[in-house]
Each structure stands twice: as structure tokens, then as C-alpha cells.
Design a protein around this nucleic acid. Structure first.
Length: 419
RNA sequence: GGGGGAGUGUCCCGAGCGGCAAAGGGGGCGGACUGUAAAUCCGCUGGCUAUGCCUUCGUAGGUUCGAGUCCUACCUCCCCCA
């Protein structure tokens, strides 16, 4: 790969964000000579983005940090269609209400990474519903649709699998790539946006936008994709034991978020430091030199840095401290995830362990699962292994701090607290 | 339009003479070993008021003491012919 002159591309390159660029020399020149507006699209498929999207958000962050204008595009229009790229079946359609609610919820995260009040390089939050929802079908077909070749669209890898496999690809979904291409052109016209970034699975969609731009008379547009990230052992980013690693604080607390990064595999630590923190490269080089058990200290730094960007420095340090107490001292940390019990719930007859773990704490999925885990020694109450599935938790189990600590495996803990 | 084939445990792939809560794998979870890592080994991997009850094999009916298995119709997909 060539060496870049522009701060933005050099930074992205040395930190491992770049998978493919449509015209690296041309784009480098653009970034070196002017303030560039670039965007990444986010479809509102859930009330929160998850760790898998963090790499995209970080790209926008660096874009702004190196003096350019970052646009996060909410898919209020495209979300009504659903991206079929590399999916083997159609997603369920979302209602407008759901889409709007999801967008409102997702939006909150961006202000932690982007500055929306920075003069000429303020970040922008735009919703493609703005131009997509009002489209006139016939006009759109004539102005935009005529530039697309179905033959060519069918040849894209992103839909090939779907076609070869057997699953039907509805006409609705098939239009997604056209809408995304059109988004790029609209952003170019309205906001002078020149670059679209995204995950490598978006390459085809982005390039379509560039082509459409040619035909519809925009300036030269560019594509930049990031690698599809997996952990060293092949798992997709953003999934953990308890499900997705959400970015919204109301869906995943800072402590659990911190834990996700703390549990990074050795082989991923350096890569993640570069991608997910803003530590200087020299510092990352120093940390990467540490090996053996020392790498645990590096993982803590990784976890704290990533968490600090999202949830704030104070919350990150509190999470680190909670983890230190819990894992290193074996002490009881008061701010582990806590379930409050309404007055007297523990009082009368106590709570059976099974329902305490399943219904009350939500650590396991069902009573049956709790029973199985007891058999294999995976459940503990106040750090004592549970052996009897008939055991009942009573006020006598309360620690001096007035809580009962439930643990599932070594890493998942919940405090029950009567109030 | 004609002919042939397929849909299995709500993560995936996949076996399944009429007695089936249904083989096997992957993934996931727990345990052991470690460093809150990886690798490895062991166990678990429908629900419940639990020596029993309930819900599961594309959908709806039917035959049978008993249906994932047989019959009928329907849905979806694949292949061949037109």
C-alpha cells in the first residue's frame, strides 16, 4: 500500500482501518488539499448500535479529528427497506414508529465521539428520510432507475449468495442498493459530500453510488471500506456471552462494556488498541511490547480507554475499580449490576435459588438452565457454590453490606438488594 | 404448464424401520487447567408447580392404541423438461 500524505488517511492506514479505497491517490490528494465531507450510514435496525459499529464511529471520529466534516447518516428511509447485502434471508420489516424510536435512541451515542458544535468542521447528523420518503416513484425510476443495470446488480457478491442459495430476494430489498447509491448522490449535492465509508460488506453499495454520481453529474466520489472485523478466533465483533455489546448505556452498563474489552484475546489486543482507542501510536507500540501476564495490564488500559470514550472517564474508572475488587481482591464491589427487590420480597418465605438466578437476576434463561448449571457447579451465592437446587435464599444470606451476590460462572455477577 | 426432490430440536448444519424430547457435528454455556487470554480435556445445550405433565420435526387436516416417520391438501424452495 502507498504511503499517504494526508493526516486522515495516514492515521486510518497506520491504525488498520483501511480495507479498500476506490482511488487511493486521488482521495489522498483531496484530503491533503481541502476540508472534506464524508459520511457513513447507519440503519436503525435496533434501539442501539453495538460494538460492531464502533469501528465506523471511530472512522468518523478520526475524520473530524484530522480537520474534516463527519456526517452520520441515519437510515430513516433505507431502514424501511432493509439491506439484503450478504444476508441469507429478509429481515422483518420495521414499522415507522420503530424506526423513528430506534433513530432517536441511536443518536445519543454519537455525541460522545463527534463534536456537533465545532464551527466549519462540526459533525452533521442527517436522516435520509429527508429525501427518500417523499420520492415520486415514476420520477425516481426515470431519473435514477434508468442508470442501473439489473444484469450488473445481479452480479454483485452481496446478493449472489442469496440468489445461488435458494432464498428469494424480494424486489423491495433489491432496491436497497439503489437507494443507498442515491443517498450518496443526494449528500454530494446537498452537502458536498465526497466520500462514503463503511464496512467491507458495503463496497458494492458504495461503488454503485460513485457510478450513479458520474451519471448524474456530481464531482468525483470516493469509497473507503474497513475490514470485516472478527476476533482472532473468528467470532464476530460485538457479540458476547449475554448477547450483543450495545453502546447505549441503558442497554448495557459501563461495567459490562468494560468487561467485554477486558476479556479481549491476547492476539487481538494491539489491533484493538489501534482501532478503538485514541492512544498515540507510540504508546500503543510500548504497550504491545508487553507479553505474558503483563498483557493483562494492557487489556485493562484497553478496556478503560474504550469505555471512557463511550461512557466517560469517571464511569470507566469506576468499572475498572469494580472489576479490580471483584476479581483481584475477591471482595464485594457495591456497584456490580444490582437488582433491587421491592420491600419484603426476601422476607416471608425467601426466594428459591432457581428463580433467584433466572427470573429475578436474569443470569440464566430458565429454571431448567439454572438446575443444569447447579449440576455442573456454575452457580454461586456469596461466592459459595450452590449444590442444592431446593436451596432458599433468606435474610440470613444477606452480607453485612445488605446484599446477596449471585454469580454465574466466574465472570457474571449480580447483586440482589432488598429495598 | 409437465416431471423429480427438499423443508427436522426458534443459532446453524444434519441423521431419523410407526413407540421420539428425536443420532451426530458446529456454535454457545459451565467445569478443570491458566493470566478474567488462547489451546486442550470433561459436562451441559426444549419448558414446567418434575420419578410426572406440557410444547416441538414447513402449514392444515386424516389413518392409527400410537405419526418426524403413512395418506390428502396447501405454502416455500431447488433441479430437469416445456
Amino acid at each position: 500500500m502507498m504511503s499517504f500524505r494526508s493526516d486522515f488517511l495516514r492515521t486510518l492506514d497506520e491504525r488498520g482501518f483501511i480495507h479498500q479505497i476506490s482511488d487511493d491517490e486521488g482521495l489522498d490528494k483531496l484530503f491533503a488539499t481541502e476540508t472534506v465531507t464524508a459520511y457513513i450510514g447507519f440503519d436503525p435496525t435496533a434501539p442501539s448500535l453495538h460494538a460492531g459499529s464502533l469501528i465506523q464511529i471511530m472512522m468518523l471520529h478520526w475524520l473530524q479529528a484530522t480537520g474534516h466534516r463527519a456526517v452520520s447518516l441515519m437510515g430513516g428511509g433505507t431502514g424501511m427497506v432493509g439491506d439484503p447485502s450478504f444476508k441469507d434471508e429478509a429481515r422483518q420489516l420495521m414499522t415507522l414508529d420503530t424506526i423513528e424510536a430506534n433513530i432517536a435512541s441511536i443518536k445519543r451515542v454519537f455525541s460522545n465521539y463527534l463534536d456537533y458544535d465545532a464551527g466549519a468542521t462540526s459533525a452533521l447528523m442527517i436522516n435520509n428520510a429527508e429525501w427518500l420518503r417523499g420520492l415520486n416513484y415514476l420520477e425516481f425510476l426515470r431519473d435514477v432507475g434508468r442508470h442501473f443495470s439489473v444484469n450488473r446488480m445481479l452480479s454483485f457478491d452481496s446478493v449472489k449468495m442469496r440468489l445461488e442459495r435458494e432464498q428469494s430476494l424480494s424486489f423491495l430489498e433489491f432496491n436497497y442498493m439503489i437507494l443507498q447509491a442515491y443517498d450518496f448522490v443526494e449528500l454530494a449535492k446537498r452537502y458536498d459530500c465526497r466520500l462514503q465509508m463503511g464496512g467491507s460488506d458495503q463496497w458494492g453499495n458504495i461503488v454503485n453510488g460513485i457510478d450513479l454520481g458520474h451519471r448524474m453529474g456530481t464531482p468525483q466520489l470516493y469509497a473507503l471500506t474497513s475490514p470485516l472485523l472478527t476476533t482472532a478466533s473468528g467470532a464476530k465483533m460485538g457479540k458476547s456471552a449475554n448477547g450483543a455489546v450495545w453502546l447505549n448505556a441503558d442497554m448495557l452498563g459501563a461495567y459490562e462494556f468494560w468487561q467485554y474489552w477486558r476479556n479481549t484475546e491476547d492476539a487481538d489486543v494491539t489491533r484493538f488498541l489501534k482501532l478503538y482507542t485514541t492512544l498515540p501510536m507510540s504508546e500503543i507500540a510500548r504497550l504491545s511490547a508487553l507479553g505474558g501476564a503483563e498483557i493483562n495490564e494492557v487489556k485493562k488500559i484497553l478496556a478503560t480507554e474504550v469505555t471512557a470514550m463511550l461512557h466517560g472517564r469517571a464511569a470507566a474508572e469506576a468499572a475498572a475499580e469494580t472489576a479490580r475488587k471483584t476479581f483481584e481482591e475477591g471482595a464485594l464491589a457495591a456497584d456490580l449490576p444490582t437488582v433491587e427487590l421491592a420491600g419484603g420480597t426476601l422476607g416471608a418465605d425467601g426466594i428459591g435459588v432457581l428463580s433467584a438466578f433466572s427470573e429475578v437476576a436474569g443470569l440464566v434463561a430458565s429454571n431448567g438452565e439454572a438446575r443444569r448449571q447447579i449440576k455442573s457447579g456454575g452457580l454461586r451465592v456469596n461466592d459459595v457454590v450452590v449444590t442444592d437446587d431446593k436451596r432458599v435464599l433468606t435474610p440470613a444470606d444477606l452480607t453485612p453490606e445488605g446484599v446477596i451476590k449471585l454469580s454465574f460462572g466466574k465472570k457474571k455477577h449480580v447483586l440482589l438488594k432488598p429495598v
